[in-house]
Amino acid sequence: MLILIKILKKILTVLNSNATPAQIGWGVVLGSFIGLAPFFCLHKFIILLLIIFLNVNMGAAFLSVLVFSIVGALTDPLAHKIGYALLVNTNALTGLWTKLYNMPVVPFTKFYNTIITGSFVIALILILPVFFAAKKFVIYYRKHLMQKVQNWKLMKMFKLTNFYKIYSGFSE
């Protein structure tokens, strides 16, 4: 229950911040790359650096990591199939994989794991849908729902917490 409240609080904090819909959209997209991959590897670290260095909404990104980790658990079998098809069954790509496998550093991305490759491909396919869906939702929310939500007792309570103040200050 507490976790759900926390997630809701995060969502509301992000939606009510001063971040632009595009910043939130890109945050969600980058977060999806981290959330879908099941275990730590180099490309997750690079995306984490992108989240920190690029002017995307960090709250949205971390929220997206959380949401896409749950989604990832469901898409793992699909990711495995995609990864297996690309890594094992597609002979045309074997040369590329072998080259990458023999390069320094690249193997730290664990691209040779079926789920890592599969989930990366899923995340790539989902870039535009996720970005536009997130952006559209933020615009819709701010136009139609924001005023109502601001008047929720829960929202008023959230605004009093330290996290909200710190976050608002950082996201400006």
Binding site: P38, F39, D76, A79, H80, G83, Y84, L87, V88, T94, W97, T98, Y101, N102, K110, Y112, N113, T114, I115, I116, G118
Partner: peptide, 15 residues
């Protein structure tokens, strides 16, 4: 086989 997914080993050139 791993806990999640499968590691595919490719030929190592001059490993």
């Amino acid at each position: 086989k791993r806990l999640k997914g499968m590691d595919v080993t490719f030929e190592k050139e001059n490993e």
